[in-house]
Amino acid sequence: MSDYLTRNDHFVAPDADHSIGEVDAVAVSDKVSNLWLDTWRDIRKRVLFWVSAVVVLLIVIVALFPGLFTQVNPTKCVLDFSNAGPAVGHPFGYDKQGCDVFSRVIHGTNASLSVGLLTVLISTVVGVTFGALGGFYGKWIDAVLSRVGDIFFSIPYILAAVVIMSVFSQYRNVLMVAVAIGGFAWPGVARVLRSEILRVKNADFVTASTALGRSRVKTLFLHVLPNSIAPLIVLTTLSLGGAIVAEATLSFLGVGLPGTTMSWGNDISAAQSDIRTNPMTLIYPSMALTITVLAFIMLGEVLRDALDPQARAAR
C-alpha cells in the first residue's frame, strides 16, 4: 500500500488477504479451561509456588513426625550444658536450662502449626457463616450481622486474645489459644466474603438460577459460594501465617500456651533475658517462626496472583 489513495478514491483491500471467518467463532484450544484448571496451569510454572509448597510440606512433616529429624529428647535438659555452643548431634547448641535448641525447635513445630490451623478453621467457619448469610440475604440480616462483625472488628484481635487468655488463665491449651485468636479474627473473613458475595449475587447467572426456580439456599450453595471463595482461599493462606505469629506473640507475652508446652513463642520468651549472653537461643526459634510464616505468606501471594485476574494484570 505504498501508493496511497488520494482523497476521494474508493480503496478495497484485495479479498484474498482476508479470510473472513465464522462471525462469532472462537478458536477453542484442545485443552479444557476453567478458573481452577487455569490457576493450576499458571501456578505450576512458578518457582515461588514450588519453593513455598515444599517448605510448607516439610513443616507439616516436621510437625507430625519430629522423631524423623532428631533423636534428642528436648525435655531432658542437663544444666552442665547451660548455654553451651553447638556440638556434634546438637547443631544449634544449648539454652540456659541446658536443653538442646535444635530438638526444641523441631518439637515446637507441632504446637505452632496446630494453633495456626485450628485458628484459621475457627475464623473461617464463623466468618463464612456471617459473611455469606449477610451478603446473600441482605436487608436486616445483613444489618445485624454486619454490626456484630463491627463490634468484634473494633477490638484488635491480639488485644482480645490477651484478655481472653488472662481471664481464662487456667485453661491454657492449644484449643483455647485458637478460640481466643480465631474468635476475634473472623470479621476480616466475613468482610472479604461479604463483599465478594455482593459482587457475585448480582451477576446474571445468579438471577438466571432464581428465574429457573432454584431456591435461594440452593442458589447460594451451587452458584454464589463457589464463585466467591477464590479470595477466601488467599486470605486463609495468608492468615495462617498471621495466626502462627499471634500464638507466638501470646506465648511470648506469657498468656499463650503453658510453659510446659514446647512452642517457639515460649522458647523465644524464655531466651529473652539471655539476649546479651546467648542470642542464638533466641534467634533459632525466631528463624523457624519467620520461615514458616514466610512460606505461608508466599503461598498466599502466589495464589492471589493466580486466582485474581486483576492482580495478574497488575503484575
Partner: peptide, 22 residues
Amino acid sequence: SLVLLSVPIFVLAFLAQYFIGI
C-alpha cells in the same frame, strides 16, 4: 516486603535491640 511481613514484631525488635543496641 514479603520477608518484612513474615517477621514477627518481637523478632524484629530483638534483632534491632541486639544488633543496633548491643
